[in-house]
Nucleic acid binder design. Structure first.
Lengths: 119, 119
DNA sequence: AGTCGATATATCTATATCGCCACATAGCGA
DNA sequence: TCGCTATGTGGCGATATAGATATATCGACT
């Protein structure tokens, strides 16, 4: 007989869909990639410029950019010797902005909470 | 002498800030955690209910819930023997909804692109 | 062709994390 | 107090990934 209970009983969302979504968030889960995106928010940058700005090694930057490209967040076009990168999905701005402001609010709330402790 | 060039030259965003943001996205980067959040979107659930609904082991669910709690996304209160979980940050809904609709659009675009290939 | 500069890829090591197991802890009732 | 149930925790093996180094590729220039 076949084992139909292997997967979740109430599988409203399929595993493939969840993996797709998780992969997108995973691309945003590394500080170095966030740094690259942050630099790219100022506009198009060559890989060399990103290496310079990120302070990381060229090979690492190249790999991180490949991850962001595979996640559909960064587009890359070759211009002669150099490769020009740009954010290709506006959702990146929104996601990061939302997350940042939310974190800021939380930190401020905690700070306010702590400031009460002066007897 | 001190090595001041260790970190990035143009460090607009500090490493700590980037790590904070990355940690939040990292919490959303696992399919199992997304599944738990998806179940929780229907309302409060006990750990046992989540174990049932997720189809995973109890220990795993417990650990994933701890990750979500540490990320400030899930709140847990004890009620006698059981522990009741709920989404504590409305940003979770927004983030997932944005990501899902974006992915849907992309998939539909690709499907449309592929449908042109019938000579 | 030969060389150089910009970028991608292969390989290695260290570290992180997932799922599974066994066990620990903590309320609650008999 | 004893045992049962619900949940948290620690250890283990397997896998994934970041960073570093070396090497390959590819276009431009002479």
């Amino acid at each position: 007989m076949s084992k139909t209970k292997v997967t979740a009983p109430t599988k409203v969302l399929s595993n493939v869909a969840l993996e797709l979504i998780a992969a997108r968030f995973r691309a945003l889960s590394e500080p170095m990639r966030l740094r690259l995106l942050h630099v790219l928010m100022q506009g198009e940058q060559t890989v060399g410029q990103l290496v310079e700005a990120s302070g990381s090694g060229q090979a690492n930057v190249s790999k991180h950019l490949a991850v962001l490209r595979d996640a559909g967040m960064v587009a890359m076009r070759k211009e002669g010797l150099t490769t020009v990168c740009a954010i290709s999905d506006p959702i990146v701005h929104e996601l990061c902005e939302m997350m940042c402001s939310r974190l800021k609010d939380e930190m401020e709330a905690k700070a306010a909470e702590l400031s009460r402790f002066k007897p």
